[in-house]
Amino acid sequence: MNKILIASHGHLASGIQSSLDILTGLGKEVSVIDAYVDDRDYTKDIKTFVEDLHGKTGVIFTDLLGGSVNQKVMLEVAQQKNIFVITGTNLAIVLSVALSTDSVTKESLQELIAASQVQLVEVSHDDTNLSDDSFLE
């Protein structure tokens, strides 16, 4: 599995971890930072994640572009070509990366991100049901 850190203002990061765990059982496999819920200097935790990669590929998810958490992350990874930073994080993109069996690349991440957008859901009257034969083809 790709190495993952999720960092957010407050408990969004550990909340996504909890959802990931219910859906896939992979909650323990990701690192999280819930920033500003206490006095901890979480930049240390970013550094630890980066060091533990030992140059291998990693993905850091942050909550808001331009938010302080994202800024701190960018400062820590500016020199690291092996780390991708994704912001505006939602559960869909974290799931996609966590379940991706290949090591991610810039191109593969762009595809996963495109398939993980927030969207308006409307009642659709799609009554195209498959016949037995077309299903079994």
């Binding site: 219910i22 859906l23 896939t24 799931l95 379940l99 299903f135 079994l136």
Partner: peptide
């Protein structure tokens, strides 16, 4: 649902869901 759609169809490599 999530566990089924995302995880199991991939794990089991099943093109068809009934």
């Amino acid at each position: 649902h999530g566990q089924v759609a995302l995880v199991w169809t991939k794990e089991l490599d099943t093109p068809g869901i009934v």
